[in-house]
Simulated scan of single mutants.
Amino acid sequence: MLKYTIRRILLTIPILLGVTAVTSALVYLAPGNPARIALGQAPRPKRYENSNERWD
């Protein structure tokens, strides 16, 4: 039973790495800008620039 548990735990490592890679790729490829999404439809230009610099 211990051997089975260790094997299952070791097999979760590549699965977690794969899920992390896919999630990161989807976030990177998603259209849009986090600053514009966080500030809403019509942000003030200065607030947009400040927020955009923080996320770049």
Rank of each mutant, 00 (worst) to 15 (best):
V22M: 12
N52Y: 14
N33G: 00
P31Y: 04
E49P: 02
L11S: 03
G18P: 07
E53W: 07
E49L: 13
I15K: 08
L26Y: 12
Y48A: 00
P45R: 05
Y4W: 00
L39P: 11
Y4F: 13
P43W: 04
S51H: 11
L17F: 15
I9L: 15
A21N: 05
V22D: 12
L16C: 10
R8T: 11
T12W: 08
G32L: 06
V22T: 15
N33Y: 02
P45I: 12
I15M: 10
G40L: 13
W55L: 10
R7D: 11
L39I: 05
P43Q: 05
Y48P: 00
K3L: 04
L17A: 07
Y28N: 04
G18T: 01
T23N: 08
N50F: 10
D56C: 02
R47C: 11
A21D: 12
L11G: 06
G40I: 11
L39N: 02
A35R: 03
R8I: 02
S24R: 04
T20L: 13
L29V: 05
L17K: 00
V19P: 12
G32I: 13
L2S: 11
Q41T: 14
R36V: 01
L10I: 05
D56F: 01
P14E: 06
E49S: 02
L39M: 03
V27Q: 06
I15E: 09
P31H: 09
E53N: 08
R36C: 02
L10T: 01
P45A: 05
L11W: 11
Y4R: 09
L29C: 06
T5F: 10
P31V: 02
P31A: 02
V22H: 13
A21R: 03
L39R: 00
A21P: 01
T12V: 04
P14K: 01
G40R: 03
P34M: 02
A21W: 10
G18A: 02
P31M: 03
